[in-house]
Design a protein around this nucleic acid. Structure first.
Lengths: 198, 198
DNA sequence: TGTACATCAGTGAACGCGCGTTCACTGATGTAC
DNA sequence: TGTACATCAGTGAACGCGCGTTCACTGATGTAC
């Protein structure tokens, strides 16, 4: 039982780890990753600048946790539009959601893909729980084993590339919203790679 | 006439700008972009740490010049495999060269795509001289105007995405060399997007 | 129900770091006459 | 061919910066008995 509702801060914060991650996520809405500082986050949490070290080995570990949170969020968004009965439609929707996520949270996306890939972790390696597990799953329903790997790689590269280029301002989604561009390219790519829609 | 061959350094370096860019390119072969310092480059050039400011407004400007050099190098490599008489073959070769370049010089590639897109500059905007101008050109020979833009975007995204994911270690080109993976995906994508090879 | 004690989660001061950059300066070079 | 002088390309010392992190410490909490 924590006295979280009182404005008076107790000596023990009680939720510091999660608070720090949340604050970092929030900061990344307006601040570039390099400019997000451990000290700043600690201050915002109302805690000394050393307190975070109780919960994270170092700054990199915190950012890693932020990246994981980003993947979790993305995964959740993908799940909303998932549809096991219509894998093709699901994949196109995935593309839209993916690009929208990246475009909407560019700095978070950069954190997610900037560092080294997350070490295999129980919350991330289970196929269906990972972002790419969802792609694999739905793609697996509509493309045969020999080409499966190749198509998956192509789709992933396409989406990541499109997202990155949009984020860095190298391409603009003329007129249309980014997610529509994502969906359009995905539809075309699927038509080409998997065959025409039935 | 410069006394460049003498080991004795004259007060005026004479080639400092180019030397700094070259040293940066060299450093990026083994050192991450964040760890490449102006001071370090100056020291390597045998010059005071302030000398670079005669040639670049600030560090960012130097890195920008490095990025431009990277694009020039990439463009030159693409030209080697270009083939106006067989645009399809040229495009597949482009894909291989592109991915090989990115995979072979990952830190340089990151510098090229990390910063803001280069400001329009006479050496980069001329269509045929830009990297993407070459793609546009060859793609333009085999796909009709309405879909041209879309196919270009797809190819570029695919290559950039694949390169980025390879670089960050998120995917591995199992067995095959990266450029072969690039060529393979490009061939498949072109077959799907443009139609079967004639 | 109380108490002792291990453990956990904070504090606060201080430091090292090495970078980019400022400042005022000086040596070298090219050119007009 | 010489000379005066503007301009260019360097020097060298110093600083501010704010970060991540170390260190030794203390207050709060949970649990065994």
């Amino acid at each position: 039982m924590y006295a979280m509702s009182t404005s008076k801060r107790s000596y023990h914060h009680g939720q510091l780890r999660q608070t720090l991650v949340d604050l970092a996520l929030e900061a990344l809405e307006t601040t570039d990753p390099e400019a997000v500082t451990l000290r700043g986050l600690a201050e915002q949490a109302g805690v000394s600048s050393m307190a975070p070290y109780r919960h994270f080995q170092d700054k990199a570990a915190l950012m890693q946790a932020v990246a994981v949170a980003g993947f979790t969020e993305l995964r959740n968004r993908l799940r909303v539009v998932d549809d096991a009965d219509n894998p093709r439609r699901a994949l196109v929707a995935f593309a839209g959601v993916y690009v929208r996520f990246a475009y909407g949270r560019p700095r978070l996306y950069r954190v997610m893909f900037g560092g080294p890939p997350p070490t295999p972790d129980e919350s991330l390696t289970e196929d269906e729980t990972t972002v790419y597990g969802l792609f694999t799953l739905r793609l697996g329903q509509i493309v045969e084993p020999p080409r499966r790997e190749e198509v998956l790689l192509t789709c992933w590269s396409l989406l990541h590339g499109l997202s990155s280029l949009l984020i860095s301002g190298r391409i603009r989604s003329a007129g249309a919203a980014p997610e529509q561009l994502g969906e359009r390219l995905a539809r075309t790519a699927l038509a080409g790679l998997v065959g025409p829609e039935r």
